[in-house]
Amino acid sequence: MPYAFTLDDVAFLRSADGARALAAVAALPLTGRVADVAAVRKLVGERFAPVLETVLLRRKGKLDPNWLYTSDALQQASVPPVARHRAARLAGRDVHDVTCSIGADLAELGRIARRCVGSDLDPVRLAMARHNCPDVPVVRADALKPVTRNAVIVADPARRDSAGRRTWRPADFAPPLDALAEVYAGRDLAVKCAPGLDPAAVPWAAEIELVSLDGQVREACVWSAGLATARRRATVLRSDGSRWTVTDRDPDDVGAAAPGEWIVDPDGAVVRAGLVKHYAARHGLWQLDERIAYLTGHTPPPGVRAFRVAEHGHYQEKSLRTLLRARGVGRLEILVRGLDVDPDALRKRLKLTGAEEATVVLTRIGRTPHFFLCRAERVPR
């Protein structure tokens, strides 16, 4: 069970004595064994539990290593590049983060908004936010009882039930999405959600944006009418600071045709946003099948990991095994869309022993299963 911080814990961690205790424990190797508790207790005394928990959370490396956070708050917090991107859309505005928690979004909003305030009901998280975001005012307030006027409302509802289990029903969020939309009707509203959000659950949303970072889909953000610039958007971020976006306003006049020299698996944000055709049109690609997200073409987009096709044909496990053994393939990446194939189970059944490595893309074209034997390559920017 995660440690339950108290206000007294936070006050100690923010003090000079707390800073010394954190520094001392941070110097320990901390193997994850029971002996760690005894070692930390010996080093810092009865305050060992909040100090040990804080050091362990900081070692996860998700946020600023000098911050304070609880385990649950850290799990839900946006990583800085994603929070920074969302904040950039609100530059120069007055912003109220009504579920500020420990301040992950608040920190980025505070750097770019004209004026910014954070609020939350949890007094412990508010105390941590005051430490993490010293230049942004925070107050205790219920997100469903407005305490500001005219500011853009930013919210990140908790997505766990009273037992701590993850919930996917927007009505079970805290606060519920519909309640937020009702309370702030007529005001600009941006709500962070899980990437699996069903658009039908937010009929009031004018834009749904899917955001990925380094190939991993991180979140969806729902934007009200005053903030929307498209109906659907996919934003792809990289840790090097680069980013690009595609929306449903981009052309989508592509269809399906015979395979080209490359297979491209679009970023997950593009797929989840339903913008595969728009992405394909931008880069001169087309689909293998109009119901499958794999794209193909003669020139892959810059900066992506694409798959140069060496051989393709109708897929049968036995014939694929024969081909791979003939080519000396022993290390095989298996990508699947549209077929009921478990990559791990298939890899075991193939029993490959060669020295070469390859990627096989398994999909269907129409009703026919196909394979594409490929070499994965990182395309230069």
Rank of each mutant, 00 (worst) to 15 (best):
R233F: 10
R233Y: 10
A234D: 00
A234W: 00
A234N: 01
T235A: 12
T235K: 02
R238E: 14
R238V: 09
S239W: 12
D240M: 07
G241H: 13
R243D: 06
W244M: 14
T245C: 15
T245W: 11
T247K: 08
D248T: 02
D248G: 04
R249N: 07
R249P: 04
D250T: 02
D250M: 03
P251H: 07
P251Y: 09
V254E: 07
A257C: 09
P259M: 05
P259E: 06
G260P: 05
G260A: 14
E261S: 13
W262E: 13
W262H: 13
I263P: 03
I263Y: 09
V264F: 06
P266S: 10
D267K: 00
D267R: 00
A269L: 12
R272D: 12
R272L: 15
G274C: 00
L275S: 01
K277N: 15
H278M: 00
H278L: 01
A280I: 04
R282Q: 07
R282C: 01
H283N: 12
L285Q: 07
W286L: 05
W286Q: 06
W286C: 03
L288G: 03
L288A: 08
D289A: 15
D289Y: 12
R291K: 15
A293H: 04
L295K: 07
T296S: 09
T296P: 02
H298A: 08
P300H: 03
P300D: 12
P300E: 07
P302G: 11
P302R: 08
P302C: 12
G303N: 08
R305C: 06
A306V: 03
A306I: 00
F307K: 02
R308K: 13
A310Y: 08
A310I: 04
A310N: 10
H312E: 05
H312W: 11
G313D: 09
H314E: 15
Y315D: 12
Q316A: 14
E317N: 05
K318E: 12
L320I: 06
L324R: 03
L324P: 02
R325K: 15
A326V: 04
R331I: 03
R331P: 00
L332F: 04
E333Y: 10
E333C: 10
I334F: 09
L335S: 10
V336S: 09
V336C: 12
V336M: 10
R337T: 14
G338R: 12
L339M: 13
L339V: 14
D340F: 12
L346P: 00
R347T: 01
R347V: 02
K348E: 15
R349T: 06
R349G: 05
R349E: 13
R349W: 11
L350K: 00
L350H: 01
L350E: 03
